[in-house]
Amino acid sequence: MFEIRTRPGRVLLQIAATILVIPYLFPLVVMVRGAFAGEGLENFAAVLQVPGFGRFFVNSMVIAAVVIALVYAVTMMAAFGFAKLHIRFREVWFWLLLACLTLPEVVLLAPLFATATRLGLYDTYWAVVLPLAALQVPFAVLLTRNFVKSLPDELFEAARLDGANSYRGFIHLVLPLTRPIAAAVIIFTLVAAWNNYLFPLVFLQSAELQTITLVPQFFVGQFSNDQTKILASAVITAIPEVIAYLSLQRLFERGLSAGAIK
């Protein structure tokens, strides 16, 4: 990562970054303005009054939390193995894992549906949690492996000299030192799990298991299409993600700038 020390250079960099961000902010501004159009705050009140809205919100929280826990655990162990352990054909396994990034969700729907039905997981949280976690692991490992690889080997050698095995090195060295990249993994996984629409729509049939991303369906019908309330539901859905990012922003930026992307 380059560093600009002069004040004029920093000002120019800030201006350039602001100009690059504007196209991404435009859809958000349009969404918020549309949510307040028409009846204003009544649009948000209508969304909150959707039958079962609280239950949908809790379902999304449960699914996102379990997905994050699974992705974090698997990613950290895989990244440690690919970066620091001497595993036979390590690079082959790593590139096979990255090949999974080429698989879109739509292509996997039919085999996932057949598997979930046969295993008795259909219409349960696990029918959504397991595919979501599996799809997030390859990208998370790609980010985390570079970060773990940048950790000094001398730390692990010193731990071995003190009698620590790989497990203790992982617990006492990798996990504490990878908190910045862990924040990035959590944010990316939260966004993917919280915003997912396809898997809950296909694998969750019971009304009490539906997620918050399906709330806009209540305002779309054969003879109605209330866009203001749809946009209001989108704004409400985005609030937890914004709060999570603001809470982990510093660690998130440190994780990406300290070796996650090279």
Rank of each mutant, 00 (worst) to 15 (best):
L13P: 01
A183C: 04
A234I: 01
L12N: 04
R55T: 06
I187Y: 15
F170N: 04
T178V: 10
F26V: 13
I181F: 04
V185A: 03
Y167K: 11
A164E: 13
S247H: 14
I4N: 10
L175R: 08
L97C: 11
T228S: 15
K149C: 03
L155M: 04
R250E: 14
R88H: 09
N165W: 08
D153H: 15
P104E: 04
F156E: 00
A140F: 07
F170Y: 14
P51M: 02
Y245F: 12
E105K: 15
G34F: 15
Y197S: 02
R90M: 01
T117Q: 11
I230Y: 07
P152A: 09
W93S: 06
R5V: 01
Q222V: 07
G163N: 05
W194L: 00
T211C: 04
F199I: 06
P152Q: 12
S257M: 00
P23M: 08
A16R: 05
V106L: 12
F80A: 13
L25P: 00
Y245H: 02
A258G: 03
L108D: 04
E39R: 12
A244L: 09
L204D: 00
D162S: 05
Q222G: 13
F188E: 06
L175W: 05
Y125R: 10
R118G: 06
R145A: 01
P138E: 04
L119H: 07
V47D: 06
A158Q: 12
V185G: 03
V191D: 08
K84H: 07
V62A: 08
G255Y: 06
V235L: 09
V67N: 08
L20P: 00
A159V: 02
W194N: 00
F57M: 02
V235H: 09
A110W: 09
A45H: 14
A244W: 08
P176Y: 12
L161A: 08
A83V: 11
V191G: 02
A116S: 11
S233A: 15
L214Y: 07
I4K: 15
F170E: 03
P216L: 09
E91W: 15
F170H: 07
E154W: 13
V106G: 10
E3A: 13
V32G: 02
A37P: 00
K229G: 05
N146E: 01
V58I: 10
A79C: 11
I22D: 05
L20M: 09
G40Q: 06
S233I: 07
G169R: 10
L103S: 02
Y167N: 03
N59Q: 01
L132P: 06
L246G: 09
K229A: 12
A65Y: 04
